[in-house]
Design a protein around this nucleic acid. Sequence first.
DNA 1: TTGTAAGCGTTATCAC
DNA 2: GTGATAACGCTTACAA
Lengths: 339, 339
Amino acid sequence: MTKMSDVAALAGVSTATVSRVLRNPETVTETTKQKVLEAIEELNYQPNMLARHFRRSQTNTILVVVPNIINTVFAEIVGGIEEEASKNGYRVLLRNSNNQIDREYGSIEHMKQRQVDGMIMLSPRLDEEILQDISEKYPIVLATAHLDETKIPVVSIDNVSSSKKATEHLIRLGHRRIAHITGQLDSMISRYRFKGYREAMKENGIDYDTQLIREGEFTFESGYEQMMNLLDQKFPPTALFAASDEMAMGAINAAKSRGVNVPEDLAVVGFDNIRFSSVFDPPLTTIAQPKFGMGEKAMELLMKKFNGEPVEQTEHILPDELIIRDSCGARLKEKLIRT
Amino acid sequence: MTKMSDVAALAGVSTATVSRVLRNPETVTETTKQKVLEAIEELNYQPNMLARHFRRSQTNTILVVVPNIINTVFAEIVGGIEEEASKNGYRVLLRNSNNQIDREYGSIEHMKQRQVDGMIMLSPRLDEEILQDISEKYPIVLATAHLDETKIPVVSIDNVSSSKKATEHLIRLGHRRIAHITGQLDSMISRYRFKGYREAMKENGIDYDTQLIREGEFTFESGYEQMMNLLDQKFPPTALFAASDEMAMGAINAAKSRGVNVPEDLAVVGFDNIRFSSVFDPPLTTIAQPKFGMGEKAMELLMKKFNGEPVEQTEHILPDELIIRDSCGARLKEKLIRT
DNA sequence: TTGTAAGCGTTATCAC
DNA sequence: GTGATAACGCTTACAA
């Protein structure tokens, strides 16, 4: 393998100069620069990045810890992170935590060993104190997360107000028996979405009926199962707000299997606006998160940390949007009114 | 930062011994090992991996180049790779190529600069000769790819026979006007799936009608559009084999929008068996690829290359499976026969 | 502007 | 079984 000293020899300069040409070309005269560049070309020289990383103790690599890359929500966020990282000359190391706390914890070792310059965690399950500790020593940004009091940069949407908006949409359509299938309640996000639901109900003077709450797991299967459960009740709900589109789809399929029509007999609103929501039958009314944009934003914040720029606010709330399609019945209602 | 020499000093041994305890504990007596371990514990020592990588010129990192991580097929394969890599103490660097050849090409620089020990490319678009060149110098494995003559390890399913199987399934259900929406035909995979379709038609004595072939782009939208196109014809098809589930879904929605019932008026078979295929209405009959398993297998092969073990065959064909659900009408037919 | 030379922290070779 | 020590290839004071 040709190394810098080979280039230096051929160009008749010192390795220091070669290094300068590579990293601070402006500090070198045009003529020597040309000589060096030619030598590099001639020898087909590639710098040994490992040596560089070691010397500078910097890797231009970030770690992204994801509960599960197979989940389209996370895949899209990772897409945004990768795009922005790439633009800034950074590389992305991917780590599936499978929602296991010890795996999340283990990935921190990577940073301690200086293998990455910083990290982005999506929907972390790690304790807030632990995260706080890490954040004091290493650059870290969280996404789709919520913290109570710490000063770690977080990129998210407002899960409470968006859920409230979703629920209110159903209320406005005349529903009062509105069920809610939550995500795992040990996750902050699920609790916040649940909170938005409760606030909407309360502010509209609707009694909060625990019979209408079910805890799911953000999967089709759990949505299906919990909906079956809800339909088995004496007074089944007329509407459902599901904390994810996958669960909404599962729930709708459960309804279909029971001959319950969506949206006629059951209005449904989901959450996330994943790729498949618009293709589903009926197309899902849902809260859209700017997933790709959240990834980009998270990486931007991390770049700021790298550059020592101050990160103004700790919570970066991106705009969400209620996307009205067919599953909530709003369009159906409009049509009925018009005719 | 505490370094190895600090540990050595505290334990009263040389750095060489500390290094041995860390990497070849069996070459050290139990007592010295304990001393060293205690010192490590006491000082909270973390080895500087950058130094180690540099010294050993090995990073325990592989690069995975993916057309687009947002595509669930690739996300699942990456999931499998990550899982297997993790088990072997390897880390996964993710790179989206966005199907751009220059981005694929650029990622090779990473290997030349020794930043990764090897790479896995999914559905590469790079020329076979270029890949061959790289393969001679660096460990590389391809997945969901096809090569004509080279000796690069490839993990894939048999796209020809599986497509043939899918098409024959439709033929067996009595269809003769079977349309095919392909993926981009500049991709080998699309051409192979197309080939399987043609073979099935030919072997069953059905004239191959170019009017029934449409080139899509592996997306909903293209499936929708091409199906609209097909339905506009004087003699529309009675069945469709789409080269991906996404396109099948788009096509089914196009049919629905025209009042064409699936599977009654149009039988559809897709390809990939993505997560959403079973939830779609109607649930998709499709060819299942062992996506996660393909990722694991690809990583296994890469590990073999790392360990200098011979990779017996260059093409590793994993089993596919025709999953019969509702979109092809087979179940409907069964039901009719039974009643 | 350019060269000299001292590291960076680990591993591997060679003695002992 | 353990220690001394020379790399590994680059960057960066500091000197010229």
